[in-house]
């Protein structure tokens, strides 16, 4: 398993245009980031295109990693998720999601589980539990699947504005809990 410090060192060298470090970073993290792209896009070829974009972004922006104060995996996952959702939003609204995958990868942390801080994980989980179940699920699927307010409103069969108010209130509650 590659440690957090290893990945941090790789990112620092990538900022110096070190291709060997970039190749090592790709080997250590591409499976996780591909998982993130697949989860959002639910389409293999789009996820592959996006993953390529993700690594080019990482190559170009490695020097900005430090300002975010993120742990290395947080930064990488954030880059991947942002680009995957950008791609998702660019799909023509009238076309249904392609969904060419037989099944989504199983929801279990992989063995190499490029670890997040355990405490971080516990904190968001505990704070989501303080929300009503439906709202916690909504936050989760917005983060993991890239759902929009419109998707949520349809799913819960409520008007768009109701949905927006509902979720914003949950986010503020979540902020209060996370700050405690």
């Amino acid at each position: 398993m590659t440690s957090i410090t290893d990945i941090e060192a790789m990112i620092a060298r990538v900022a110096l245009r070190d291709r060997a470090a970039f190749a090592a970073l790709y080997d250590a993290t591409s499976a996780k980031l591909f998982g993130v792209c697949l989860r959002v896009l639910n389409n293999r070829s789009e996820a592959e295109d996006t993953l390529q974009e993700v690594y080019l972004r990482i190559w170009a922006k490695a020097d900005t990693y430090a300002v975010t104060g993120h742990s290395p995996m947080t930064w990488l996952i954030t880059v991947a998720r942002n680009l995957a959702i950008d791609r998702l939003r660019k799909r023509k609204p009238e076309t249904a999601p392609p969904g060419d995958m037989d099944e989504l990868p199983a929801s279990a942390p992989g063995p190499e589980a490029v670890a997040m801080e355990r405490s971080e994980r516990a904190r968001i989980a505990a704070c989501l539990e303080e929300l009503d179940e439906g709202k916690a699920d909504a936050v989760r699927s917005v983060y993991l699947d890239g759902l929009t307010y419109q998707d949520l409103a349809t799913r819960h069969d409520v008007p768009l504005n109701t949905m927006r108010t509902w979720l914003r209130r949950s986010l503020i509650k979540l902020r209060e809990c996370l700050t405690r």
């Binding site: 697949l38 104060g69 993120h70 742990s71």
Partner: peptide, 18 residues
């Protein structure tokens, strides 16, 4: 927010790209 929400992606299983 990015830092706090990122652990949610722990549940996403890694998948090897081609």
């Amino acid at each position: 927010w990015e830092g706090e929400l990122a652990p949610l992606s722990e549940e996403i299983a890694p998948a090897a790209p081609p």
